[in-house]
Design a binder for these strands. Structure first.
Lengths: 145, 145
DNA sequence: TCAATAAAAGATATTCGTATCTTTTATTGA
DNA sequence: TCAATAAAAGATACGAATATCTTTTATTGA
């Protein structure tokens, strides 16, 4: 696996896609999303249900229903999605898996890993969900394959 | 999970411990290692068997047997351990899990993630397995809890 | 040669992330 | 009111990572 769980990868791709597709109003359905980001439909549905319950994305049932994002959520940092799905351990956990690793009681890699984690956190908190809408429109950023 | 698999975390802690314990000759047994890094003994045994087969660590059977490291392996970069266990995807993979993510066909986070991965790779290739022996002796670095 | 030691190897079990399928609930428009 | 739509919710399945236990092989020293 990469830096994040598969679940989290799908979640990030999905929120980017939803932002891109609904920035000008409207909603996008689960089938459409799944096809657009190349993810298993029913599995993604579970993930989006969860994000919806947490208020990170919006959803509506029935005809013309689907997923969308309100203004506030468009400006939300991607870190919120990651934290909702994978937890905050990616930002705070020890690289060697120690429970009590800290500056006072460091593992061999503590100092080095702090830098990596901080950089990662900086990126994920500064990137917003809606930030790539234009580049996705232009087709110079991709969410599948 | 964190940045690496649990298997990889155990592997890293184990090689640091073996280096620390056998730098001045001798060997260290699996029970001792497992207790010293707080890992399940039989599971760790499998991991070390694999590292041994790959030549990243040395082992000897029988009385006074155990695991150890030769001079060459002491100077090996930690990246070799990570790559042996988790593969190289941590250094090269797309943050969003895309197969064909590249500078020519980037995902939204491609540029940002390249920096993180490069920094990680730089750290893991510059850190050697034997680098922390002294600090482990002094008890200012830890490998358990 | 033999008994003790310790890793290697094999078999099996468990847990969790991932995935699929079915049923239910809410919404819409005719 | 009704049929169609689409997400929510529930149940189940699958596979890989994690973990445990047993048997085998190699080595040592007496």
């Amino acid at each position: 696996m990469g830096m994040f769980s598969k679940t989290c990868e799908y979640a990030m791709r999905a929120v980017f896609l939803i932002a891109h597709r609904t920035a000008n109003g409207g909603r996008v359905g689960i089938k459409d999303i799944a096809a657009s980001i190349d993810s298993p439909e029913h599995f993604l549905a579970k993930i989006l249900q969860d994000l919806s319950k947490r208020g990170i994305i919006q959803s509506a049932k029935g005809p013309h229903g689907g997923f969308y994002l309100d203004k506030k959520n468009l400006e939300r940092p991607l870190a919120d999605v990651v934290e909702a799905v994978d937890g905050s351990s990616i930002f705070t956990g020890c690289g060697l898996g120690l429970e009590e690793c800290s500056s006072e009681r460091p593992c061999p890699l503590h100092n080095d890993f702090m830098k990596v984690r901080n950089q990662l956190q900086k990126i994920l908190t500064s990137v917003t969900i809606g930030q790539f809408n234009e580049e996705l429109n232009l087709g110079i950023r991709h969410l599948k394959r």
